[in-house]
Write a protein that binds this DNA or RNA. Structure first.
Lengths: 117, 117
DNA sequence: CAGTATCCTGCTTGATACTG
DNA sequence: CAGTATCAAGCAGGATACTG
């Protein structure tokens, strides 16, 4: 999941910051713990994950649930609002998949002038 | 258009960089010249506009057309690929409009902890 | 007109170490 | 386990001045 080889950041469409879109997808099928999220988001630092989660929480897209076990446990879940984003996100993903080749071709054909933003 | 009072950047969904989404919308109804684009995108510097346009061009979303008149003239237009983005973009905008209030409420209700990312 | 060039500030991201 | 603290590097964006 989210392999660095797969350049999904080629898509010009973004949700929130660098990680937000991926986090939402990770929560699609149920709550996940902080450390569980770090696995699919390979290489994310605790700091970056915390920051992204806080922003999503602030925007009402995810919910933070603290369990008061002896071993500390914190879970994250999509709110109804966050869940409502899945549909538009799917639309965007469908577009990206459909035009994947064209995007790649455009990059390859681009001149150094364009590449050197 | 794109009044700073209207906080459209509240939406967590982004297309490209800060200006890309707005540029695409500006080209929705036909080609525009460099200086024409600067008007609705109030306050954008030439540098920022150039950078964003180059990136969009590199991704095959817009096309740059140079006219060799005596007065220099450059026009920008959406490519078919760029035009194909209008539909998913409309989907996203619809979502943002629909959940506008919820997003605002979430921000208001957010704790300082979340706000201080 | 349609950009470049230069300088500058601040945000984002990462690496690393530490903590209740 | 779920973070926080600190440092450092890089990039984005703006202000301003200049150019073919």
């Amino acid at each position: 999941m989210f392999d660095p080889v797969c350049p999904s950041d080629l898509s010009p469409i973004r949700v929130g910051d660098k990680w937000a879109g991926m986090i939402i997808r990770c929560l699609e099928h149920g709550t996940r713990r902080f450390s569980e999220l770090r696995i699919p988001l390979r290489g994310i630092t605790a700091k970056a994950l915390t920051k992204s989660l806080r922003a999503l929480e602030r925007d009402g897209l995810i919910q933070r649930i603290t369990h008061l076990d002896r071993a500390r446990r914190v879970e994250y879940d999509l709110t109804p609002l966050g869940r409502s984003m899945l549909e538009p996100m799917a639309t965007m993903c469908a577009w990206a998949e459909e035009h994947w080749e064209e995007l790649l071709d455009a990059r390859e054909a681009s001149t150094p002038l364009q590449r050197a933003r």
